[in-house]
Write a protein that binds this DNA or RNA. Structure first.
Lengths: 252, 252
DNA sequence: CGCAATATTGACCACTCTCAATGAGGGTGG
DNA sequence: CCACCCTCATTGAGAGTGGTCAATATTGCG
């Protein structure tokens, strides 16, 4: 049963947010009864701790996961024991959309910081979306958004240098924290330098050097995993290709 | 109206293939009448020629595009007049899924080789999918597949060296041609070296040098835009990290 | 308190980008 | 039909970013 009741229209957003389906229904004008139906299929689990797996590569796909609190990383284990980080997931973000395709998870998901995670059985969700057009539309938007974001990341990795990658990464985190009501300038990294490097396609040493350089350039202040972005504009300028304005890349 | 009639169950695949909705309905067991309904909303346009635009960045999103014949590239124009290639699209592939999100195209699509392209009005498609559960499921799978593929490419660009990137690119093309009934070993590149480099995040010169090297190593034969893959296993081995087996990357 | 994991910093070197020159097609106009 | 031009592709030489190796903090945990 739903932990949170929908009392009135004004409370829908609150209910949605609390039930961690914010990403699913917030942007749409769902009817209260539809929100409740959606809410009723959501399973809420006890908190998971650092290192716990939501699922592993090869596991059958049954449910989508929504991060409520904490953080989760997705990755593909590689043959030599290492792993390839695919993404970091903050509260409100959905995990598992890539597994709908063949009903098997193509990656693993592991908790970084103690996390509350909801599960949405996908077959139940499909039943709902086929009777609630606006929910179906929202699902399409959700999947489409994931595609857009992947495309953005793709360009990030393909043609950005180390400096631009880290700047983009930090601004992405900043933006996502901001949207969720946290500080955009002051946050905690739940992942290690190694994981950041892995995700961005950089060596750990490079990530470390860049943090130092950014700090020297008064762009941010870093203390271990605590980050304070001092000059958001400066970071943005790095991504936009400032710094060496005359520079003309060969493959743009 | 549909150009192709569905006569019997065995003909569904043919009808689907001909109407270029292969990607949409082939994998599912759609009923004949549903296939016809799907078919009836598809718009068929006259062939487009090299350089023609399917849509431009910023255009309102109305329809999905399906490549019937020929090839299309998608890209984001960058401020300095250059462009960022996002993908190459072969027959049977769908373009525009990333624009569902906010109903605006985030990239441009341009014809590489004379192409027949179908259009599927998305609002009509949504109406259909909400009354045909198996079609809805297929749409989810389609979107999910796009996400999976982006993820794969993401890893390709993030942590692969030039050699691995080009090998992966060629094998991807090979596989896609094969699935569509063309030769897996012998095909024509519809894109320039420059576009390949742009897509893979490499300089044109690097792409050119790699083609030469691969040819010297008897992995393939290249004549201008005509490619003959001689040693598929060898190319695969490059991606798997062969060649220098003792090599251990720092960020895997 | 000590060991292990993580982070930082430095020196070196390889890969690939950049710059530059040359070659090869493909189209156009005389 | 050929000369010319323009784009695309190839090849070489030099330079710079970032990876690798190694040593040294620093932190966290048992």
């Amino acid at each position: 049963m739903a932990e949170y009741r929908v009392i009135s229209l004004e409370n829908i957003k609150v209910a949605c947010k609390d039930c961690s389906l914010a990403t699913l229904c917030l942007p749409m004008g769902l009817l209260p009864e539809d929100v409740e139906r959606l809410d009723s299929i959501v399973k809420r689990n006890r908190p998971l701790h650092r290192g716990d797996h939501l699922f592993r590569e090869g596991d059958p796909f049954k449910t989508l996961f929504i991060v409520k609190t904490g953080s989760v990383k997705t990755f593909t284990p590689s043959e030599d024991g290492g792993e390839q980080v695919l993404g970091f997931h903050l509260p409100g973000e959905i995990i598992g959309l890539d597994a709908i395709q063949n009903e098997v998870h193509g990656c693993s998901a592991k908790v970084l910081e103690t996390a509350a995670v909801c599960e949405v059985p996908f077959d139940r969700l499909e039943e709902l979306t086929s009777t609630i057009p606006s929910l179906q539309h929202q699902m399409y938007r959700l999947l489409s958004k994931e595609i857009s974001e992947d495309t953005g990341l793709l360009m990030l990795l393909g043609k950005r240098n180390a400096e631009e990658r880290l700047a983009a990464f930090l601004l992405s985190l900043s933006d996502r924290f901001k949207r969720r009501g946290f500080s955009a300038n002051d946050f905690h990294l739940s992942m290690s330098r190694h994981e950041i490097g892995n995700y961005l396609g950089l060596a750990v040493e490079t990530v470390s050097r860049l943090f130092t350089r950014f700090q020297d350039e008064r762009l941010l202040e870093v203390d271990r995993k605590h980050i304070r972005l001092v000059d958001l504009g400066g970071l943005q300028a790095i991504i936009n290709g400032a710094g060496c304005e005359g520079h003309q890349s060969n493959y743009t």
